[in-house]
């Protein structure tokens, strides 16, 4: 399973993060805007081809794993229990396209590079910092939650019956939440002492290059998006 950045080479790696993000946006909009069944099918074929050409076909096995439960339940609900096989097929293609496009973005985009791209584009520093910080806080707190869970279970926490479960939830949830709140004071002092609120825009340390090819690609993707939406509303 590839769920995040993995180093590699190829034009998708060299592309500006916003270009790849625009690709995801284009996929999101066009799978819904273009007429079914041909539209979503075409987008899926296109995005899978792009994964091969861009040298990131390694995302396809993961994409299949993520898409499989969708297909399963779509078939059960709409084909076996219902009678809308076309709907199942369309939704399946839409979801699969989105999954592949998003995995491509995740695998080629180092979060630090995205943050630098946001700073270089002079987007609010707070937004870039919150994203970077949240991405790094989640694994830390997840590990801590798992540690608290294991410790309490070892100490013989009972998890039977509704009351027991709610009690257990408090016994496990409270230390996690209070522990996190305890960090707030020290962390905010550290951030304040390191100049996060000077009113100046931070300097991006490794701004990704934004080539004319990038700009052209984004322009084409925007045209594609607008055209797809126009097709939707004009036909």
């Amino acid at each position: 399973m590839i769920l995040g950045y993995e180093s590699g080479s190829g034009f998708l790696y060299r592309a500006h993060p916003f270009t790849v993000l625009t690709l995801v946006l284009a996929t999101l909009v066009t799978v819904f805007a273009l007429p079914a069944l041909v539209g979503p099918l075409g987008v899926l074929v296109g995005i899978v081809l792009l994964a091969f050409i861009g040298g990131v076909s390694k995302v396809l096995p993961t994409a299949s794993v993520l898409a499989a439960p969708f297909w399963f339940f779509l078939v059960v609900i709409h084909v076996i229990l219902g009678d809308a096989p076309t709907r199942a097929l369309v939704v399946g293609l839409q979801v699969s396209s989105m999954i592949v496009a998003f995995l491509i973005f995740l695998v080629v985009t180092h979060p630090g590079r995205l943050v630098d791209a946001m700073l270089a584009r002079r987007l609010p520093a707070g937004a870039a910092y919150l994203l970077a910080s949240a991405l790094q806080t989640v694994p830390r707190l997840r590990a801590r939650a798992a540690a608290i869970r294991d410790a309490q279970l070892v100490r013989g926490l009972r998890v039977q019956g509704v009351g027991g479960r709610v009690q257990g939830l408090l016994a496990l949830g409270m230390p996690l939440v209070l522990g996190a709140l305890h960090e707030v004071d020290e962390r905010s002092l550290a951030l304040a002492s390191r100049g996060v609120q000077t009113g100046l825009h931070p300097t991006p340390l490794h701004p990704p290059s934004d080539s004319s090819l990038d700009r052209l690609a984004r322009l084409l993707l925007y045209v594609f998006i607008v055209a797809a939406v126009a097709v939707r509303f004009l036909t």
């Binding site: 180092h110 943050v115 970077a132 790094q136 806080t137 020290e186 390191r194």
Partner: peptide, 8 residues
């Protein structure tokens, strides 16, 4: 806790 958490 001094770490910014915002760099890689």
């Amino acid at each position: 806790t001094q770490l910014s958490g915002m760099t890689f």
